[in-house]
Amino acid sequence: MEKSTWRNVLGVCVLIHIICSHVMVSILDIRINAGFLMTFLYACMSFVIFRPAHRIMRIMQLGSMVSAYAFFMIFALYDPVWFTIIKVDWVVFALLILMCLTYGHRLTERITLWMMAICLGEALYALTIHRLTSSIVIGDLSFLSMAVQGVVFLLGVGQLEKLLNTRSSRKPVKGAAKST
C-alpha cells in the first residue's frame, strides 16, 4: 500500500482497535467487547460509504450470512458430535468466506459483507443462547481473531486476483524472438 493519508488513518484506526480489544463494556447483563463495537462501527460506516449498487440484494445476502453464522454456532452447541474433529470456527469461517467471495465482486464489498456478517451473527448468536447462560458476552477474543483472519484472507485473495489479472492482460510483444 502506497504512503497516503488514507493509509495513516487506517493505521491509527487499527492501533486504537488493538488497544480497545481488551476492554469490556457492561450494559445491564450484557458485556460487549469494545473491539466488537469498533468492528461493527467500521462495518456500518463502510456499508454507507461504499454504497452497494443493489442495496436490497446486499441486505438479503447479509441476512443469509448472518443466519448461517448463528445457525452453525448454535448447531455446534446442541449437537457437538458433528464438530469433534473439525472446530466449528473453521466451518463458519470457510462458509462465510465462500459466501463473501460469491456475493462480493470488489474487495471493499467482500470485506464489508464479512465484517457486517460476523458482527451481526455474533450478536444474534449471543442473544439466542442468552436463555442458557446467566449473562450475555458479545465479541470475545476468538471472535476478533476470526474477524482478522477473514480480512487477511480476503486481502490475500484480492491480491491474488490482481496478480492474475495483470498477468493475463499482458500482451505478447510483436517481433519478439521465439525461444526454442
Rank of each mutant, 00 (worst) to 15 (best):
E2L: 12
K3I: 13
T5Q: 08
W6S: 12
W6R: 14
W6K: 09
L10P: 03
L15A: 15
H17N: 12
I18L: 15
S21Y: 06
H22K: 15
H22G: 15
M24Y: 02
M24Q: 08
R31F: 00
I32C: 06
A34T: 07
M38G: 12
L41S: 09
Y42W: 14
C44H: 10
C44K: 13
S46H: 06
S46E: 12
S46T: 06
F50G: 11
F50P: 05
A53Q: 02
H54E: 13
I56G: 02
I59Q: 08
M60W: 05
L62E: 12
L62Y: 03
L62M: 10
G63I: 00
G63L: 05
G63S: 11
S64N: 13
M65W: 05
V66I: 15
V66E: 04
S67P: 04
A68R: 03
F71G: 14
F75A: 13
A76R: 11
A76G: 15
L77E: 13
Y78C: 12
P80D: 14
P80E: 10
W82Q: 04
F83W: 04
I85W: 03
I86E: 03
V88K: 07
W90K: 10
V91Q: 02
A94Y: 00
L96D: 05
C100D: 09
T102V: 06
H105G: 10
L107P: 02
R110F: 01
T112F: 08
W114N: 07
W114A: 03
A117M: 03
I118H: 03
I118D: 00
C119A: 15
L124F: 07
T128N: 11
I129V: 14
H130Y: 11
S135F: 10
S135K: 01
V137Q: 07
V137G: 00
I138H: 00
L141K: 09
L144D: 00
S145N: 15
A147N: 08
A147Q: 00
G150V: 00
L155R: 08
G156Q: 03
V157C: 14
G158K: 01
Q159G: 02
S169C: 11
K171M: 03
P172W: 09
K178T: 10
